[in-house]
Nucleic acid binder design. Structure first.
Length: 191
DNA sequence: TAAAAGATTTCCT
DNA sequence: GGAAATCTTTTAT
């Protein structure tokens, strides 16, 4: 899938297409291995009750970043798709600038370096200043894989509404995801 | 104006 | 496995 098409699609589609993609901020980053989809008509989505000051980026053009503060402590990065829908970047496999990322995060080890939305933003130095910026221009760099890798899915993490929907996606077999996926038929490659 | 909830992480037991 | 840390945004009164 091409990037421009991705940005106009549903979050559900984009969340899967982004698995295996290369993502860098100022040359530092890795391979996206875990995402979650949030749609406009999705009670768990920030956009569900319509535009507010915080979520305004979700209603802007696709291909931009939606960055918000989580629990008053962390930052979380989303890829905006069509209006009101976005994909949360939950984990990446560290590949470029690993030393710098470890320096930013402190020593919890390589496996936990970017395993979780808050950790990804800390390692890549993403914050509120990136909210609304285009992901196809510096400091961002995003490129999709040529072939779609094997993907597993499961329930989203840390939400109370629509928690049963299997809208979390991961690279099959990756050890860099934030939580393991349940072993179910057709989801056998989880780790 | 007040209260509650929240797309989390970390440390402790 | 459980709770604390920490604070902004949103919703209710």
């Amino acid at each position: 899938m091409r990037l421009d098409r991705l940005f106009g699609s549903s979050a559900l589609e984009a969340a899967q297409a982004l698995i295996g993609a290369e993502f860098r901020v100022d040359q530092i980053g890795g391979i996206i291995v875990e995402t979650e989809a949030y749609e406009l008509e999705d009670p768990a989505s920030h956009s569900f009750r319509g535009p507010t000051e915080r979520n305004r980026s979700m209603f802007g053009p696709g291909g931009r970043a939606y960055v918000y503060r989580s629990y008053g402590i962390h930052w979380c990065l989303n890829v905006v798709c069509r209006p009101g829908s976005a994909v949360l970047i939950r984990a990446i496999e560290p590949r470029w600038g690993v030393g710098e990322m470890e320096h930013r995060r402190g020593g919890l080890g390589l496996r936990l370096l970017c395993a979780g939305p808050g950790r990804v933003c800390q390692a890549l130095a993403v914050s509120g200043i990136h909210d609304g910026l285009s992901l196809t221009q510096p400091p961002f760099e995003l490129s999709l894989p040529e072939r779609r890798p094997p993907i597993v899915s499961g329930r989203r993490i840390g939400i109370t509404k629509a928690a049963e929907l299997p809208w979390r996606f991961g690279l099959a077999g990756s050890i860099f995801i934030s939580r393991r996926f349940a072993e179910t038929p057709g989801n056998t490659a989880s780790s």
